[in-house]
Design a protein around this nucleic acid. Structure first.
Lengths: 150, 150
DNA sequence: CAGCATCCAAACAGATACTG
DNA sequence: CAGTATCTGTTTGGATGCTG
């Protein structure tokens, strides 16, 4: 019987899981993986990475205009974090008025690829998830307490 | 000249980005993609999915023992959210003492594959990120304010 | 055993005012 | 323009006590 690609993935899965589980709980929570994974799903981080990936190079206020609803403070904090992690480069030009340009580093672009994959999964499966939520909520509604989750 | 897989990925990237950016900011932030992406990187969600993927089926307290440091409240909340999203199934046995078994659904397992991919990226690149952080922090240290970020 | 309810501290994030 | 500083409301998550 032939083995499909899915079978192969399932095989490797077990192996990979063991590896991850062996590394995830080390040294009382100081494991860096969790901190890195946080970059993946932070709302403002992902949007910043998307827009920088799309535009190539952007100044602070250009980015701010593109990211709907972000405050100046959060954009600053987000960009600092991304810069610190080596995902975004920050180029300051000593001019008046000041000009600061941001772009993704190679590392940042490789992260972008991953985030897009996640986005595709989310996009492909959002209907299933939304349906599951509706089922869950209406079932709960009949039982009694409906407003457990938004 | 031959096109590599990487070239192909880069090509599609632009296309995928456009699609995502076109969908991410719709309707004043009600876009469901963000909500779904949150499942990816929530600390307790990912760990729950990892351990359920590893063990197959687990009872509440079995899972609690495996996830180091999780409080009862957070495990309950996390499992409810995952159940609501159709990622985890919850089977209650009408016994005394009560027995409740959790396992991943098909949808949950497909999410697990994605999360493992993220984990691999994080694992493969954690050294680069940690080095970048060290560089950033020592540079900042020389300039003056060092304790901007943990 | 598998939880729900409540209280409280800490982290997060928006609004506002100010600056080189 | 590109931030910093501060204040404050909101969200999160841990601890604890109680139930079927």
């Amino acid at each position: 019987m032939n083995r499909t690609i899915i079978d192969y993935q399932e095989d490797r899965l077990e192996e990979k899981l063991q590896k991850i589980l062996g590394n995830v709980d080390v040294a009382g929570g100081t494991c860096p993986i969790r901190h890195i994974l946080a970059r993946f799903s932070d709302k403002w981080s992902t949007l910043s990475i998307f827009h920088l990936g799309d535009a190539g190079t952007l100044r602070f206020n250009e980015l701010k205009k593109r990211i709907d609803g972000i405050s100046q403070r959060m954009l600053t904090v987000t960009l600092r974090t991304l810069e610190r992690d080596g995902l975004v480069s920050r180029q300051v030009y000593a001019e008046i008025p000041p000009r600061v340009e941001y772009q993704l580093t190679d590392l940042g672009r490789s992260l972008l690829v991953q985030i897009i994959n996640m986005g595709e999964w989310a996009s492909n499966n959002s209907n299933q998830i939304i349906e599951a939520r509706t089922r869950f909520d209406t079932r709960e509604g009949k039982a009694g307490n409906s407003v457990l989750l938004d």
